[in-house]
């Protein structure tokens, strides 16, 4: 028995919710960043499932664009996190408070 469209969509919604809550709750920048990537992957999974079950092809093409964009985002994002760690010796969100007044 193959899984139905609903189960794919539910799985991707669950992944998206985990990612979103993780961004809000977690305090370590790297974990937050992983959660952000999880949100993108959840969207990709839903896109592929919709595209496969509905027989529309625009979604498959979109997946490639999302992967490319995610790769660019990770490259820039990790560079910023590494530079910040060099400057502050920490990546904990609570300790990054120079801009609060």
């Amino acid at each position: 028995m193959s899984p139905s469209l609903d189960s794919y969509v539910l799985l991707s919604a669950a992944l998206f919710a985990i990612g979103f809550l993780g961004v809000l709750v977690r305090r370590n920048t790297l974990v937050i960043y992983m959660c952000l990537e999880l949100m993108l992957v959840a969207s990709t999974l839903a896109l592929v499932a919709f595209s496969r079950f509905n027989g529309t092809e625009a979604g498959d093409v979109f997946v490639f664009f999302i992967l490319t964009v995610a790769a660019a985002e990770v490259a820039v994002g990790l560079a910023i996190i590494v530079a910040l760690f060099r400057a502050r010796q920490t990546v904990q969100v609570d300790e990054l408070d120079l801009l609060k007044k």
Partner: peptide
């Protein structure tokens, strides 16, 4: 930069999931 990165990616994630839902 880090704050903008996290907030920007978060908003892109929300936008993308919205687009995917509409498409589906």
């Amino acid at each position: 930069g880090l704050k903008y990165l996290v907030m920007g990616s978060l908003s892109s994630g929300l936008l993308l999931f919205g687009i995917v839902l509409l498409y589906g």
